[in-house]
Nucleic acid binder design. Structure first.
Lengths: 194, 194
DNA sequence: GCCAATAAGTGACCGCGGTCAATTTTGGAG
DNA sequence: CTCCAAAATTGACCGCGGTCACTTATTGGC
């Protein structure tokens, strides 16, 4: 039984990821060029694509890792007591997801995997996000006529909506928080007329 | 005062759009190549970009026009009496928006204009969509504790969510309609526990 | 009808993501 | 140690969106 993966492979992969992180730190995600990454890692272009299916796969890794670290923070935060509390807890993540237009686009594009066998880091974080939020919503002072899972999916949908508005010239006069609050109030604590 | 736009310009533009529509009819939006469009129109590549800022601008026009025609149908439909009725009325539009993964991506990307002066066709249709739905929701048997405008934005957010799930391997076992129904029931007709 | 001034059109060229046949490196079998 | 098949790497090449200095057509003033 062969050692299935060589040491060299791991080293090259690490060099590519390090180089990519350096480029991102320097110039942001949108400015990342594959040629720059391979130059920084000291390998040929083809090597990059032997390690990553395409540029999106690298972005999935880089962005997914950061989302995951935000989720770590979120998971260790206390259960929010109301909508404002919930929003405040989510804000670091939402701010990261909208730090660049390009980042938001990549996240939307990769948040659903086309096939089960190619679920990426970002798609995983979305599952995790839903679970964390659902657990909160089951405990909190929110509506109980629908399942916490459905509520969490709604929080997700409205977060996407609010983030999209941030990039829209017609609606970006309000902050993300201000956009999100009325949605979540109406979603989580409805007061329908009798 | 000069005639600001020449006849030739309109003719070339029309030829480009015709050629683009022919390509789309033949092979779909995703397969459209600028080189194929200019070949079909009998002009040089540079001419294309004198008429459209980029390929997305052409897509905005083509896709926006189709969305608009679906909105015409929707607008002339009777006010929906319940959630299922609403979904059925919206379905032709939602089906078109998810006819190709590429089309959905373009719509998401162009649904918010980065600057007011460059609001495109798709962004316009989203405004129109919100107005049509808001008018319906004001009349129908739906919750009244929040404004019809906010309700309409929610319908939009959940529609996007349901469409995204259609492209997601983890959640595409249900149809778009089945995904959308529980969201809209919970959003438009909440029954919170007393 | 002629002549600038301006608008429209051209195509060679570039940037960058992605491919692949050829080459080098690796690690275990004999 | 030698050999070799699989794994890793290479870099020339391609596809395609987008640019721009230059050419060609149009139009209003004389």
């Amino acid at each position: 039984m062969n050692k299935p993966v060589q040491q060299r492979t791991l080293k090259t992969r690490a060099r590519l990821i390090d180089a990519a992180n350096a480029v991102v730190a320097e110039a942001g995600f949108d400015a990342l060029r594959v040629e720059q990454v391979v130059a920084g890692a000291g390998v040929a272009k083809g090597t990059f694509f032997a390690h990553f299916k395409d540029k999106d796969a690298l972005m999935d890794l880089l962005i997914g890792a950061r989302i995951d670290s935000y989720l770590d923070q979120i998971e260790s935060a206390p259960t929010p007591r109301d909508v404002d509390d919930l929003i405040e807890t989510l804000m670091p993540l939402l701010n990261f997801m909208t730090c660049e237009r390009y980042v938001f686009d990549v996240i939307l594009r990769l948040s659903g995997a086309a096939a089960v066998e190619q679920i990426g880091a970002i798609a995983m974080t979305f599952e995790r996000h839903a679970q964390v939020v659902a657990k909160w919503l089951a405990d909190g002072p929110f509506r109980t006529d629908v399942s916490p899972e459905l509520l969490a999916e709604g929080v997700h949908a409205f977060s996407i909506q609010a983030m999209a508005l941030k990039f829209c010239a017609l609606h970006n006069s309000q902050t993300l928080t201000e956009n999100l609050r009325p949605y979540l109030r109406a979603w989580l604590m409805p007061q329908p007329a009798s």
